Simulated assay, not measured.
Amino acid sequence: MEAAKETDNKNLRRGWTTGTCAAAASKAACLALVSGGFPDMVEVTLPGGQRPSFALAMEEAGDGFARAGIVKDAGDDPDVTHGALIMSTVRRGAAGSGITFRAGKGVGTVTRPGLPLPPGEPSINPVPRKMIAEAIAEVAGGESDFEVEISVADGEKIAERTLNGRLGILGGISILGTTGIVIPFSCAAWIHSIWRGIDVARAAGLAHVAGSTGNTSEKAAQAHHGLPEIALIDMGDFVGGMLKYLRGHPVQKVTIAGGVAKMTKLAQGMLDVHSKRGLADLEALAKVAAEAGADAGLVERIAGANTVSHAFALADGNGLALGDRIAALAWKAAARALHHPGVALEILVYDREGRLVGQAPFTPSDHSESLPA
Rank of each mutant, 00 (worst) to 15 (best):
M1H: 04
M1C: 06
A3F: 09
A3C: 03
K5E: 07
K10L: 09
W16N: 07
G19W: 08
A24Q: 08
A32L: 03
L33F: 01
L33A: 00
L33Y: 00
S35I: 08
G37T: 15
L56T: 03
L56C: 01
A57F: 07
M58N: 02
A66G: 07
A66D: 14
A68S: 12
D76H: 05
P78T: 15
R91M: 14
G93R: 11
A94C: 04
I99H: 09
T100C: 04
F101A: 09
K105Y: 13
G106A: 07
G108R: 03
P113K: 02
L115G: 05
P116A: 14
P118E: 12
P122E: 14
P122N: 01
P128I: 06
E134I: 01
V139I: 11
V139F: 07
G142K: 07
F146E: 01
E149H: 06
I150M: 11
V152S: 05
A153T: 13
R161H: 12
L167P: 12
I169P: 06
S174L: 09
I175N: 02
T178G: 08
T179Y: 10
I183G: 00
F185M: 13
F185D: 08
I198D: 03
I198E: 03
G205L: 11
T216W: 01
S217K: 07
A221H: 02
H224V: 12
L227G: 14
P228E: 02
E229A: 10
M235D: 03
G236A: 08
G240H: 01
Y245S: 10
G248I: 01
H249C: 05
A257K: 08
G269Y: 06
S275N: 03
S275F: 12
G278I: 05
L282T: 11
A284I: 02
A289R: 05
A292I: 01
A292Q: 12
G293K: 04
D295N: 13
D295S: 11
V299R: 12
I302W: 11
N306A: 09
S309C: 04
S309I: 09
H310R: 15
L314E: 00
N318M: 13
L320R: 12
I326G: 09
I326Y: 04
A330D: 07
A333E: 12
R336N: 06
L338I: 03
L348W: 07
Y350K: 02
R352W: 02
R355L: 07
Q359K: 14
A360Q: 13
H367M: 15
